[in-house]
């Protein structure tokens, strides 16, 4: 859709070959956020990770958690997104998550329900015989 997409993560969480899908890969969050319009955080899915790909939540927050200092690297009017549920203090600081100047997380979560309903409707229309 014409966007430039960057992913930022420790090397242990970056999928193999992901750069071939057309994204730019960063392991340094400050560098990756430089000049960004939209910052989309993802939840650290501890329950699926088995033996940890990252050493601890405090280290993850220090280097990959979105706080005001890191967000300052993005554009001044950057939007902050997160599909929820959030691990506050792990991948995102509450001060950023609740900052209405930047955060559209509440709207994103709310619209997420409508978007999922629409996608399911489109995908199943034919099978339901009312295309």
């Amino acid at each position: 859709m014409g966007s430039r997409v960057r992913i930022i993560a420790p090397p242990t969480l970056i999928p193999a070959g992901v750069a071939a899908l057309g994204v730019e890969v960063f392991t340094d969050m400050d560098a990756g956020l430089e000049g960004a319009d939209i910052v989309m955080m993802l939840r650290l899915q501890k329950e699926r990770m088995g033996r940890a790909f990252v050493p601890s939540a405090r280290e993850y927050f220090r280097f990959y958690g979105l706080d005001a200092a890191k967000l300052a690297r993005a554009k001044p009017d950057a939007l902050v997104m997160h599909p929820g549920p959030m691990n506050r203090g792990v991948e995102i600081a509450s001060a950023v998550a609740d900052d209405l100047q930047h955060s559209v997380i509440q709207e994103q979560v709310e619209m997420g329900v409508a978007v999922r309903m629409a996608v399911l409707d489109l995908l199943t229309r034919e099978a339901r015989g009312n295309a």
Binding site: T12, A52, R58
Partner: peptide
């Protein structure tokens, strides 16, 4: 077994 906190240790 588990990775140590290399980032914080380096700092």
């Amino acid at each position: 077994r588990e990775l140590a906190e290399m980032g914080l240790l380096k700092e």
